[in-house]
Nucleic acid binder design. Structure first.
Lengths: 341, 341
DNA sequence: GGTTAGCACTCAACAGAAGAGAGTGCTAAC
DNA sequence: GTTAGCACTCTCTTCTGTTGAGTGCTAACC
């Protein structure tokens, strides 16, 4: 049995209908709705074929057909065109991104919100870990007596600070000197490569300013610690509520609990993500618990750092809309990163 | 009709039972369960009285009784003792708070998570706006050519930074001078009192370093902007899923959408919160949409700044547990703030 | 040979009826 | 004032019949 044009058309109609209504699609109703030129009986025959081929499923004997995951896969691979965002939506996105020249964090969570609002799916953004970016610069800023701020800058332009306490006798000039020494040592090292043994070596080298070094190094240590993991932002979990497939409260609870765990998301999205939009449908997800969910995601790259943006929804997902939106958002994120640098 | 001891005891039993089971409590079952020394019939008479007095309600004629909101209020006011956290839980809390000497943000969201995990209710923390705290100090730190960081310190020890672009010709010394001028001008002003007209005045004063001033003032402006509102953290929304009263998906969706809006929470919690634990039961909430929810909250204060911590759950809430937990968390937050300063 | 009309059959979903069970209110006795 | 007894109420569950959308098969049609 081969997939001819008519079968394709029928499969497509079923997918579109099912995505819209979440109900099994019957032959009669379908012919009517899509104004097909063939009779319901013919459609039934074709449907039976498609079921044999594994593209369709029947919830029970006297129900219509729904696309199987294989059916969705075929649809996505061979028949779908990704739908671009409307002018309005793009405007909105640009506007939001521009207004928010605030924190990178705020920009990111704004974008996640945008994603979930536009698509009505759950969105996520995985921000790359700091330790893969390059160290660029460190500064010690004196505050009032006995206090200072460690200011750490990475090549991505990410700035972090931490307050430290220092002996009151230390002068601003001494602070500067210490900062210079540290800068020379760390210069152009990857953040992740600044090991504790490095820190130890330096500790020994500069005994006379021990106390300042001590706290500074501790601060750096803790900055590294606090941002060494990838940050994960998830937005629009409530959108899952609107999907009839998650009516079951237990199921819903399980899924939400799952998605709230950063670890899960990080492990589910492949490590190496291309800059194309990838789709994982139901069982294609690496973990069993997500068999009823699909993911549409892509990577964004900048200066060798890889982040991931994606949408999560039911298998019965408007993939065309999801891919289009992700595409648009990816490019604007890239653009912001460019400018930020 | 007066509230005698026996009536109290019966009301209490009904409240406890109902909080536990979410089912109307019948006379017979209650007598059995609580081993009361009176017969079911007597209890029925008392129940009828309590209903007349408004403390109980009957979902329908042949069902048991449930406490009315007035009943809960009476229980909370006259009969409840708040239940302290267990040693274990306190340990856990301290441990968590100490490990997280990271960002204030992270500490806060960690505490919110703790709250919702321990109690199984939804927790929120409203962090005070920055503009009510005092300006203390500002520093301009040169980065590589053409870039600098504005470092802003408030009296609470809150440090904020923002990257700015400056003309390449500006020397680090000039930056220092500019920072000094700004410091003299702003010194000891409340953040909120730094008006745009202030900024304008200074703009005019120092024409020669116009460009740097421009971007610095813009940065300050945007820092003020971005943190001028109170920040709201909500955690454990999923806990609502476990409550039988929110089985109805539509209701649930409405409530979650409500609680996700920072604005709503900010407007619902009274502006002036004492350092005692307050309770709002159902209709006592200022907005109609929250009539099925109760709030248990308190204020934490430090250097004149007022933040709020609270729990949100169904009217059928374990108030004793909630108040105890809030109490414990309030005191640890205070402690952290003390140390942080 | 592909297409279509016709028809018997299937099955979920809905609606009503019957029965069980938990609970109440009232009355009369203790 | 307290309690046992009893009739009554109302929800919830179970069962049953009905409806309707949909299928698969067969025979006729082009």
């Amino acid at each position: 049995m081969t997939m001819d044009d008519r079968k394709q058309k029928i499969l497509q109609s079923i997918v579109l209908d099912y995505v819209e209504t979440a109900e099994p699609v019957g032959s009669r109703a379908m012919v009517k709705k899509h104004g097909l030129r063939i009779s319901a009986a013919t459609v039934r025959n074709e449907m039976a074929d498609l079921e044999d081929m594994g593209y369709l499923e029947q919830p029970h004997t006297s129900a219509g057909r729904i696309p199987s995951q294989k059916g969705f896969r075929y649809f996505v691979d061979c028949m779908m065109e990704s739908q671009e965002l409307s002018e309005q939506e793009i405007d909105l996105l640009y506007q939001m991104a521009r207004n928010n020249v605030k924190d990178w964090d705020e920009v990111i969570s704004g974008i996640a919100q945008f994603l979930s609002q536009i698509t009505h799916y759950t969105s996520f953004i995985i921000m790359p870990a700091v330790h893969v970016s390059q160290f660029r610069f460190l500064q010690l800023v004196p505050l009032e007596k006995g206090r200072a701020v460690v200011l750490l800058v990475t090549d991505m332009g990410l700035i972090m600070h931490r307050k430290i306490e220092i002996p009151e006798s230390i002068t601003p000039e001494e602070l500067t000197t210490i900062a210079e020494v540290l800068n020379r040592t760390f210069s152009a090292k990857k953040m992740g490569e600044i090991t504790r043994s490095d820190l130890q070596t330096i500790r020994n080298d500069l005994n006379q300013r021990k106390k300042v070094l001590e706290v500074t190094l501790n601060a750096i240590d803790s900055l590294l610690e606090s941002s060494s993991g990838e940050r994960v932002v998830v937005s629009g979990l409530i959108n899952l509520l609107r999907e009839p497939e998650f009516r079951d409260l237990d199921k819903l609870k399980r899924i939400i609990t799952l998605l709230e765990e950063d670890v899960v998301l990080r492990s589910v999205v492949p490590n190496e993500v291309s800059e194309q939009v990838d789709i994982l449908i139901g069982n294609e997800n690496p973990i069993q618990e997500m068999k009823d969910l699909s993911m549409v995601f892509t990577g964004y790259k900048s200066f060798g750092v890889l982040g991931k943006i994606g949408l999560i929804g039911p298998v019965r997902m408007e993939y065309w809309k999801a891919t289009g939106t992700i595409e648009a958002v990816r490019s604007i994120v890239q653009e912001i990163i460019q400018k930020y640098y």
